[in-house]
Amino acid sequence: TYYTVKSGDTLNKIAAQYGVSVANLRSWNGISGDLIFVGQKLIVKKG
């Protein structure tokens, strides 16, 4: 599943929405910090 980042989104918010961990979101998307951008597509695997 792909999720497109919207204004106001955070990794924590997206992780909670999908029932996954922030660590997994980072791993699946090659993100090291907490910086995400509006319009960015993130890979999300269902929890």
Rank of each mutant, 00 (worst) to 15 (best):
T1K: 08
T1W: 13
T1Y: 14
T1D: 14
Y2C: 05
Y2L: 11
Y2H: 11
Y3A: 05
Y3L: 04
Y3C: 03
T4I: 12
T4N: 07
V5F: 03
V5K: 00
V5I: 07
V5M: 03
V5D: 00
V5C: 05
V5G: 02
K6Q: 11
K6L: 14
K6H: 08
K6W: 03
K6T: 11
S7W: 07
S7H: 10
S7Y: 08
G8Y: 06
G8M: 06
G8Q: 06
G8D: 14
G8F: 06
G8E: 08
D9T: 02
D9A: 02
T10W: 03
T10V: 05
T10I: 05
L11I: 13
L11A: 02
N12Y: 15
N12L: 12
N12H: 10
K13Y: 12
K13P: 02
K13E: 12
I14C: 01
I14G: 00
I14Y: 01
I14E: 00
I14A: 01
I14Q: 00
I14H: 00
A15Q: 02
A15N: 01
A15D: 00
A15E: 02
A15T: 02
A15V: 03
A16D: 14
Q17D: 14
Q17R: 10
Q17M: 15
Y18C: 05
Y18D: 01
Y18M: 11
Y18A: 08
G19K: 15
G19M: 12
G19H: 13
G19Y: 08
G19A: 11
V20K: 03
V20L: 08
V20S: 07
S21W: 04
S21C: 06
S21N: 07
S21Q: 06
V22E: 11
V22N: 04
V22P: 07
A23F: 09
A23E: 10
A23M: 09
A23L: 13
N24Q: 14
N24A: 09
N24L: 13
N24M: 11
N24C: 05
N24S: 13
N24W: 13
L25N: 00
L25A: 01
L25I: 10
R26K: 15
R26C: 06
R26Y: 06
R26H: 07
R26E: 12
R26M: 15
R26N: 06
S27N: 14
S27M: 10
W28H: 04
W28K: 02
W28L: 07
W28P: 01
W28V: 03
W28I: 05
W28C: 03
W28F: 05
N29S: 03
N29K: 00
N29Q: 01
G30A: 14
G30L: 11
G30Y: 08
G30Q: 11
G30W: 06
I31W: 04
I31C: 03
I31S: 03
I31M: 11
I31K: 02
S32R: 06
S32C: 05
S32K: 08
S32M: 07
S32Y: 13
S32E: 11
G33Q: 11
G33R: 07
G33S: 09
G33T: 13
G33L: 08
G33H: 14
G33A: 12
D34V: 07
D34R: 06
D34C: 07
D34I: 07
L35P: 07
L35G: 11
L35A: 13
L35T: 12
I36K: 02
I36N: 02
I36G: 02
F37Y: 08
V38Q: 14
V38F: 06
G39N: 07
G39P: 02
Q40R: 05
Q40I: 05
K41N: 09
K41P: 07
L42D: 00
L42Q: 00
L42F: 04
L42P: 00
I43L: 13
I43F: 14
I43G: 02
V44W: 03
V44T: 07
V44I: 15
K45W: 11
K45E: 12
K46W: 15
K46T: 12
K46C: 05
G47R: 07
G47Q: 11
